[in-house]
Simulated assay, not measured.
Amino acid sequence: MGFADQRFTVNLSILFTELPLLERPAAAAAAGFTAVELWWPWPDSPTPGRSELDALRKAVQDAGVRLTGLNFYAGRLPGPDRGALSMPGEESERFRANVDVAADFAGSLGCKALNALYGNRVDGVDPAEQDALALENLVLAARAADRIGAVLLIEALNAPESPLYPLVSAPAAVGVVDKVDAATGLGNARFLMDLYHLAMNGEDLPAVIDRFAGKTGHVQIADSPGRGAPGTGSLPLEDLLDRLRKAGYDGLIGLEYKPGDRTGAAVFDWLPRAAR
């Protein structure tokens, strides 16, 4: 087995960024991919105008690719923010305003996975208060995802790059997954297993795979250190993805890595075109 036995989706918020957003789906198709995913494309607007939504929808449809994953509004990405749903006040309100907008947009393209980034800790606010707010908002998000037949993804980030983010281990993120499922009874909350973030946290990746593959709704990769393409760091990504398949994960692998000094299709030289 190996990369040739996997199925990939390209994150257009970190790759092909030398192009305007509306040109990236076609660029992914030209590079041989049939599936793409996105962070929330309007970091300053949880509720963009219909014309902006329609234009992106048309770009995806015209390119002939599938949208397989979409973030809910999460603030400025890339940038200082790590989500909005646990942030008291305006940011939480912006998240709530976005929930149905994001779900409706995803549903219009047949997208079956919505990612909800938890949000940073806030100075002077009781973490328990933030966690209660987070659960309330994640329940809303899970119900919106269920309405379109999608899963709600909850992700662990890494502590060195996101020191204020509370979910910096696989068990922490899966613990939230379990709380959301218990609160909704829907069973559609799932773990987003990002092997780069988990590696940066120093986790035992084979053990994480063996323990949590059954709760995993999506997987993303980048090499570590550096968050570059596979082969630029030291992670045995082919072996890890093989282990995931053997553990029962049969979903897509999201390519969420920094392109370095390469652009266009050259960013994917590590992956034979026939495997895309």
Rank of each mutant, 00 (worst) to 15 (best):
F3C: 03
V10Q: 06
S13D: 13
L15R: 10
L19E: 03
P20F: 02
A28T: 00
A31N: 11
W42D: 01
P43A: 00
P43L: 00
S45V: 10
G49Y: 01
S51D: 15
S51E: 15
A55S: 13
A55K: 14
L56R: 04
R57N: 13
F72N: 08
R76A: 15
G79V: 15
R82I: 07
R82L: 08
G83K: 13
L85D: 08
S86V: 02
P88W: 04
P88I: 13
S92Q: 05
E93V: 05
R94C: 00
F95S: 08
F95A: 10
N98F: 03
N98M: 04
A102P: 05
A102L: 04
F105R: 06
L109K: 05
K112S: 15
A116M: 13
L117D: 04
G119F: 14
G124K: 03
V125C: 08
D126V: 02
P127W: 05
Q130L: 09
A134Y: 05
L135F: 05
N137E: 07
A142T: 04
R143T: 05
A144L: 02
A145H: 03
A145S: 15
D146R: 13
I148F: 07
A150I: 15
L152E: 03
A156N: 07
L157P: 15
N158C: 09
A159S: 03
P166A: 06
L167Y: 00
V168P: 05
S169G: 11
A170Y: 06
A173K: 06
V174E: 14
V176C: 02
V176E: 08
D178T: 12
D178P: 04
D181M: 09
G185S: 14
G185Q: 14
N188C: 09
N188D: 11
R190V: 11
F191L: 06
F191E: 00
D194A: 07
L198D: 11
M200Q: 15
E203L: 09
E203Y: 09
L205H: 09
L205D: 07
V208D: 03
A213V: 04
A213K: 01
G217Q: 00
G217W: 01
H218A: 09
H218S: 06
V219K: 08
V219T: 12
Q220V: 02
D223M: 12
P225T: 08
P230F: 08
G231Y: 02
G233K: 05
S234G: 09
L235D: 11
P236F: 03
L237G: 03
D239K: 11
L240S: 10
L240C: 05
K246A: 15
G248F: 10
G248Y: 14
D250F: 11
G251D: 10
G251C: 07
G251E: 04
I253H: 03
E256L: 07
K258P: 00
P259L: 03
P259Y: 08
P259C: 06
P259H: 10
D261V: 12
D261P: 14
A265V: 14
A266S: 15
V267W: 06
F268I: 00
W270K: 13
W270T: 14
A274R: 12
